[in-house]
């Protein structure tokens, strides 16, 4: 009994007094110090009051600094949420904007298409005979070949050599026929040769494509003095084209006579194919 009491006492003493290698103060010393500070604070001693003010200020600032990152956390969280929301919203708005733009383009396209079709329908059809409206499928501008692809082929009764007009104006002729599509060789293509007539004297000539926007008049009469602003029509001499289809206006280019086409070959969206019987020999 006495031994265990001794052990208890030794343990208590050791716990209170032993400092250890690294500790500068014993537990009992610090306990006494804490009790003294407590009592001084409780009884509002002037010295401790003043010290407490200084300690409070220092510690409050330290607390403020140490908790600053934690205070930022909700803000950061909020910012992240807002940013995520903004990103999502931006994405949605972009999609909507794109959709609207697409719709706008579609409306514009349909409007233009409608205008174009209306022009075709309302135009004075001078060209007699059966014809078929075709949509330009491909208008890829090639430096070598000036042609377009239309969405009508042999199924629609199209044959090689048929004249193709834009409204009332000649734009070219069919050179390749597929079942559902055809290729139209445009007047400005290097391979295009069309017999035409122009002027009061009904001058006969050949309209030859030169690969540029404006084809050139060839085989003019020897003594003919050309001048500009004369309307050029198809002559129908080849037996392929109907006579009197307007082609363009003459323009002088130094000694050459060029023709400014009525229908811009680069701006075709709908064309009409004249379903006339063509003589294969002539073609």
């Amino acid at each position: 009994m006495s031994s265990s009491r001794d052990d208890f006492g030794i343990a208590i003493r050791s716990a209170l007094l032993k400092k250890g290698a690294r500790q500068k103060f014993s537990l009992v010393f610090l306990l006494f110090l804490a009790i003294i500070i407590f009592l001084l604070d409780i009884y509002q001693v002037k010295f401790i009051k003043f010290s407490k003010i200084l300690i409070n200020d220092g510690i409050y600032r330290l607390t403020n600094i140490s908790t600053a990152p934690l205070k930022l956390l909700p803000k950061i969280n909020e910012t992240i949420k807002e940013t995520a929301f903004a990103v999502e919203e931006n994405k949605n708005l972009k999609t909507k904007l794109k959709e609207l733009q697409n719709k706008e383009f579609q409306v514009e396209f349909l409007k233009n298409q409608n205008d174009s079709l209306r022009r075709i329908l309302e135009s004075d059809v001078k060209i007699k005979g059966k014809s078929i409206l075709a949509k330009v499928l491909l208008d890829k501008d090639s430096p070598y070949l000036k042609s377009i692809i239309i969405n009508r082929g042999s199924k629609s009764g199209i044959n090689k050599g048929m004249p193709v007009v834009d409204g009332n104006y000649l734009v070219g002729k069919i050179v390749e026929v597929n079942y559902l599509s055809s290729r139209v060789l445009l007047l400005n293509d290097l391979n295009s040769r069309i017999p035409v007539t122009f002027g009061e004297e009904s001058i006969q000539a050949i309209l030859s494509g030169i690969g540029e926007k404006k084809p050139m008049l060839e085989y003019l009469p020897e003594l003919y003095e050309p001048y500009g602003n004369l309307t050029v029509f198809t002559s129908g001499k080849d037996g392929v084209f109907l006579p009197g289809i307007p082609v363009g206006k003459t323009e002088m280019d130094e000694l050459n006579v060029k023709v400014k086409l009525f229908s811009d070959p680069n701006q075709l969206s709908f064309v009409t194919v004249q379903l006339i019987k063509t003589n294969k020999d002539n073609f």
Binding site: S26, L27, L30, A34, I35, F38, K52, Y60
Partner: peptide, 25 residues
């Protein structure tokens, strides 16, 4: 170390608004 425990208690008292030394004790 007991010294650090003592100081941590003092700091805690200041922050919590308790009488100085109570947490240290």
């Amino acid at each position: 170390g007991n010294g650090h425990i003592f100081f941590a208690g003092i700091i805690n008292d200041v922050v919590m608004g308790l009488p100085l030394g109570i947490s240290s004790i």
